[in-house]
Design a protein around this nucleic acid. Structure first.
Lengths: 134, 134
DNA sequence: AGAGCAACTCTCAAAAAGAGACCTACAATC
DNA sequence: GATTGTAGGTCTCTTTTTGAGAGTTGCTCT
């Protein structure tokens, strides 16, 4: 019997790092989907230094389409990572900022940034080796 | 002038957390693409307790297609996170295991698992609030 | 002899992402 | 006073990714 499986409510289910990886309703997958999206974590990192407006974010991440920018912001807002505030100027301006939850996640993401910088060279080397050997 | 931009080799570029977010050749994006894929980090977590074979991984992550399993394993192998060892049994069996680099990343991912468990309730609440207010 | 496993690959359909046009309303420029 | 620009989007169309599932090769077990 595999130590990597367990029972949750009578249902046989995979366990990863002690967490039941039930396909639906798995906390880890839920969060991973958020940080896992192509733009999501980049967006949170971009708001690290303070609130930004729609067009400010576009300038900061020049290769995101408006469509994906809108959608990513909505997704992150929905899950409580960022807030959206409309100021009644003419034309209205909309400011996006990290919430407490978002700042909490940001702390984790910063470790990733550090790790990336420290290990980038090793990854590039591995990749070149792999690609070089047909 | 925005503190969020800087110059890299004479090219104006966005800065995030002090890191130049040059669209190509950005270390952070490079790593984020790896942990960011839908299955990538789940795969690394799945190998946390020891090496597994192709079919073992399928059982552990029942909702991944064979196609994506193959591709995810190749990607992670290419970037040096996992190793692939073929044993000359009949039929040959193939074992996937974390490398040192993979185990190093795993330590970071474990923090995510912890964070997910701690904050999952808050995310669900935020989501329900957002969805409940049309 | 027939079924099953292991580790894939291949094809086709569905879903997600990207490109880019379009929209409303105001402000500044020529 | 006509054009151009900005802000914060939406809409449509095309391309790229994913997913579902059948097929493959060779051996083993019943």
């Amino acid at each position: 019997m595999n130590k990597l499986t367990g029972d949750v409510k009578g249902k046989r289910v995979a366990m990863v790092c002690g967490v039941p990886m039930d396909v639906e309703n798995c906390p880890v997958r839920d969060v991973m989907d958020n940080i896992g999206g192509k733009w999501n974590s980049l967006m949170i990192l971009s708001l690290a230094d303070g609130p930004l407006r729609f067009s400010g974010l576009r300038r900061l991440i020049p290769d995101i389409s408006q469509r994906m920018l809108t959608q990513t912001l909505r997704d992150l807002q929905r899950d409580g990572y960022i807030s959206r505030t409309v100021f009644p100027t003419q034309p209205p301006s909309v400011e996006y900022a990290l919430t407490d939850l978002g700042r909490s996640l940001l702390e984790l993401l910063k470790h990733f940034v550090d790790w990336s910088l420290a290990n980038h060279a090793a990854i590039r080397t591995a990749r070149d080796t792999y690609d070089g050997a047909p």
